[in-house]
Amino acid sequence: MIQLDQASRTFQVGDQQVLALREVSLSIAAGEYIAIMGPSGSGKSTLLNLLGLLDRPSGGRYSLDGRDVTGLNEAESARVRRDKIGFVFQFFHLVPRLDAAANVALPLVLAGIAPAERKQRVAQLLADVGLSERADHLPSQLSGGQLQRVAIARAMSMHPALLLADEPTGNLDRATGREVMGVLEGLNQRGATLIVITHDQEIGARARRRIGMEDGRVISDTAT
C-alpha cells in the first residue's frame, strides 16, 4: 500500500541544512499495524507528515495505493488526505467552539457531504467510540480520553485506508492510553492500516511491526 523510495527531507534552519530524513525506503502493506519509535529529533514526525501528505519529500518517491503521490499539487494532495488518510494527534486538535458531533463531522463538511447523511454517519462514528451521549459536549467538557476518542471518530469519518497517529497516548494517563490504543487497534482489525508514533515501549510492543529510527534513518525494522 505504501511504497517509500529513498525519501529524504531537508529543512533550512538559518543558513544550515538539516537532514531530517535520509533516504528512507519503506514498504508497508495494507492492514499492517506499525509502531515507529525513536528518540525525539530522529525524524519520526517528519516521516509521518510525508506519509500523510502534509509535507513533501525533498528527494525520493512516495506512492500510495499504487499511485505516485510525490508530485501532487496542493489541491490534489488535500483530496487524498481527505479521502484516504486519517490523522490522530498527541494534542487531539479538536476545534474548541464545535461540539463533539461537529468536530467529527468536519472532514465530511470539507468533503461536501449533505447534512442529512452527515448526521447519520456522525451518530454511527460516535457510537463506535462509545461517545453517543457526549455528542453535544464541547471539547472543554470532555476528558482527555474522550477527546482522543472524538478525534479518532473524526479521523475515521471518511473511512480512510490509512490511519496515522502521532503519539496518540502522549497526553493521556496509562489506563486511558490503553483504552485509546484499544480503539485504534479495533479499527486496524477491521482493515485500516495503522501507523503509530510512540515513545512508549509497552505500546510499541503491541504493534506487529516496529520501525526504529535515529538521525533520520531507519535503524531497525522488526516484525513479530
Binding site: E74, A75, A78, F87, P107, A111
Partner: peptide
Amino acid sequence: RAEIGLLKALGASAHN
C-alpha cells in the same frame, strides 16, 4: 494556525 493546520490535515484545500 493550529486550527488551519488541522483543517488542512482533514482534507481542506488551500482554496477552502
